[in-house]
Amino acid sequence: MAVYKRAYRRYDGPLTGRWTRFMVLPRYAWRRLYQQRLVLLLTMAAFVWPLLCAGFVYLTNHVELLQGLDPEFRAFIQVNGRFFSIFMYVQGACAVFLAALAGPGLVAPDLANNALPLYFSRPLTRWSYALARLTVIVGMLSVVTWVPGLLLFGLQVGLAGGWWFLANWTLGVAVVAGFLLWLLVLGLVAMASSAYVKWRVVAGAVSLAFFFILTGVSQMINGVFRVTWGYVLDPAWAVNRVWRALLGLDPLDGPGALSSIVALAVFVLLLVLVIERKLRPVEVVR
């Protein structure tokens, strides 16, 4: 007969907070990512453009340095929506390459090495896991996108004064919101390709190819049908369109910001579906 010895007591002391627990995954992932030389190199390289832009901001705010220039040109090189849009273009492109480099390591190794059951047998839901992975890549990309953007904006405010801020605070919001949208798209593409293609070697190529191919498809449709709505199928174009609307720039030919946002929402939804289907701890083989 079994004798139950009531000697075992569960731990009932304080538990670490929910967010601390949540951040365990990202913390280790970030550490691992930045140990890779290539990631570090690319991140460093991605700071070159913000530094150049900061120099530009400094120049435009010290009018005495620009004395000799044509006044029309001086009016052109202002820190306004157009300046920030050029900044965001280049940084957005850097972010794509960084995502292709770092994205594959997100989910693919866990799937290939059958680690998902290990994760999900702990108090970690599928969605927390997915969110944690997304945080990894969004966090990593933030460092090269809206953080320098915000710093640039702050630099401009500091040099130009409070009234410039009152006049142009929408630009700061546009930079942050625009970049967050782009990072969401990038992060989901990287995660979906990492989850769908089990080996990281190809997942990176897939996330890069995604953007190239979708751009090609949208160009094809526009060319063959002689229309401009094809642009909406290209998430890079759609995000750019939203940026232009947020920054108050003139729109290019083609669908408006609203249709772009709808297309992006559909795109994001599809990616989330793919991720949901692939993040299963158990795979059934028939």
């Binding site: 070697v201 190809v202 190529a205 190819a209 190239f212 191919i213 090609g216 498809v217 160009q219 094809m220 060319g223 063959v224």
Partner: peptide
């Protein structure tokens, strides 16, 4: 337009990435 699509999309992108996937 077909010629353009063939050279810019089909050769450079479709065949490029398709062969990448198959042969790798």
């Amino acid at each position: 337009i077909f010629a353009g699509i063939f050279q810019y999309f089909y050769l450079r992108l479709a065949i490029f990435f398709g062969c990448l996937g198959i042969f790798m």
